[in-house]
Design a protein around this nucleic acid. Structure first.
Lengths: 243, 243
DNA sequence: CGTAGTCTTGACATATTTCAATGTCAGTGG
DNA sequence: CCACTGACATTGAAATATGTCAAGACTACG
């Protein structure tokens, strides 16, 4: 029942004392397992709970009427995937699983209680939603300013970095059962173009994305190609505390 | 000294009682006037205050080392332009003025006090940052999924909508002293292409963007071209309260 | 063993960028 | 009042990146 990855993340984000940790743990519902390609929460809903991702990869998506889909952000274990729904109530985008996932629900009523009793905790949850926004800003720069190759390489740099922060020390091989079509929705380019870019990365000995694993051959070169600067991922370490 | 537009926005966003309103008003520093193209806060800084925009148009930007610039969001009067800096401390992007602006600073120390004393206010400020994120998500869809014409029309639809919400009932003419180069940075296309799109919109009798004003000839057509659905802007009306 | 989903590749169409030249306008100082 | 300047806008032509279409190959799974 203990939602470790989520707790670990909050502790990394804020100065949470044992009492607060206990309160959070108590607020988290039992772990639920979902298959790949299932909707965790859907745009337009007004759920009375928020969700923490404990295992697996999910993503936030915004769908247009005509079927176009933009992936806004990938989510890794420990992320609060719809905390924004707590402050906002009505969801303006969906969260769906990309692999099998394990999640835990946190009733909004419990959060009401927590934020009133523990201002520091409220601030930390607030910070979690803001860091999420940080990723989205970076995604915006990626899609708005970087050409396809740089864009793709840059995204993989971020993902590797985040996998490591979430505790996967893959070395050079990572489990990554994500289709090229999914990558296309994230990168804002066509599936076929994703394929071409991946081929080039493969041919150039930079990385290989096969069926369900990602193999990094030359991380240095990948970071160069992606013009990657991890500064925005390290902001995590800097934060204010009310104590 | 009263930061009306900002107060008005918070009241619209949350259930703020008179005592809380007074506390916010007291926390806001004197109004400061800035010229166009000045930096309000800069990425990398760790300011000890946050800023509310009272008059004028500003934008959040993320600059790359090599000079590329992505505009993340436009800001209109009433917006809190760097509240995220309160929760995060170290800024990961800059905010710059696009026109002459009037701002007010709110010391973080005051905010510390406010969020501890008034949980409802903390939630409202949190919500303000989240709504900001909503706009960024929409920007992401715009840039990732919409071709240049739709993208441009869609952005103008959003801007008009927000100008109106902020109290400008222009009818068909809006003050909009924004250069095509700025629009290009926001839209993720080249300045020259922006020019071509604007020409087409002009030739088709949809809208005209001249020196410093925006004239909407056929709003219906603009919304059609932009595939505009204002749902995400209306989320504002739905929110939870701790009372 | 077939089927469905994904991946791969090539040829071609289109959108967008880049380059280069010219035009417009507001402000400035003679 | 006029010439000059600098920032911005406009346009065309050529180059490039990316999308679309079509066909075949691979793989997992029933």
């Amino acid at each position: 029942m203990t939602p470790e990855p989520f707790l670990a993340r909050l502790i990394a984000l804020g100065d949470i004392d044992p009492q607060e940790q206990g309160a959070i743990a108590a607020a988290c519902g039992p772990s639920i397992t979902l298959e790949a390609n299932q909707t965790i929460v859907e745009a337009g809903e007004e759920p009375d709970f928020s969700v923490a991702l404990l295992r697996g990869i999910a993503c936030r998506v915004n769908d247009l009427d005509d079927g176009r889909r933009q992936i806004l952000a990938f989510q890794v274990p420990g992320d609060g995937v719809d905390l924004y729904g707590y402050a906002l109530k009505k969801l303006d985008h969906s969260v769906v699983t990309l692999t099998q996932c394990e999640i835990s629900r946190i009733p909004h009523a419990m959060l009401d209680d927590l934020v009133v009793r523990y201002p520091q905790l409220a601030l930390t949850l607030w910070r979690e939603t803001i860091l999420d926004t940080s990723l989205m800003r970076e995604q915006l720069v990626r899609i708005g300013q970087r050409p396809a190759m740089e864009r793709t390489a840059n995204l993989f740099c971020e993902l590797i970095h985040r996998f490591e922060s979430a505790g996967f020390q893959g070395g050079e091989k990572y489990a990554f059962p994500i289709t090229q079509g999914t990558l296309a929705s994230a990168l804002g380019i066509s599936t076929i173009h994703v394929n071409r870019i991946l081929k080039q990365l493969r041919d150039d000995g930079v990385m290989m994305l096969s069926r369900s694993s990602l193999i990094i051959k030359d991380r240095r070169k990948l970071e160069l190609l992606g013009n990657f600067n991890p500064a925005y991922l390290e902001t995590v370490k800097l934060h204010r505390t009310l104590r």
